[in-house]
């Protein structure tokens, strides 16, 4: 069973985005501003798909655009899962 705590989700999202955006692994953290990163919509959709598989639930892409930073996104997803 996948670890779906906020902490592990933050790590997963940061690693995923760092790989997709070709950034050094340590540049992203819980407080990384999602808007400032300028994430392409194709990456957003791919990440939504990965997170749906991981959490076993449907995720609206708007959740991604609503969140201020990685931590808020992870917290929102974990809260929705409950």
């Amino acid at each position: 069973m996948q670890d779906t705590s906020v902490h592990s989700l933050v790590d997963y999202i940061c690693n995923y985005l760092a790989t997709a955006l070709e950034l050094p692994p340590d540049t992203l953290g819980p407080n990384s501003d999602l808007e400032c990163l300028g994430i392409p919509s194709s990456v957003v959709m791919a990440l939504v798909g990965e997170l749906e598989d991981r959490l076993g639930m449907e995720i609206a892409p708007t959740a991604f655009f609503d969140a201020q930073d990685v931590l808020e996104l992870a917290q929102g997803l974990v809260a929705e899962r409950r």
Binding site: E35, S41, I59, P61, T62
Partner: peptide
């Protein structure tokens, strides 16, 4: 950003 939020995200999701 407006198009992403109000058109892209609702349609894609």
């Amino acid at each position: 950003d407006w198009l992403k939020y109000h058109v892209f995200a609702p349609v894609a999701g």
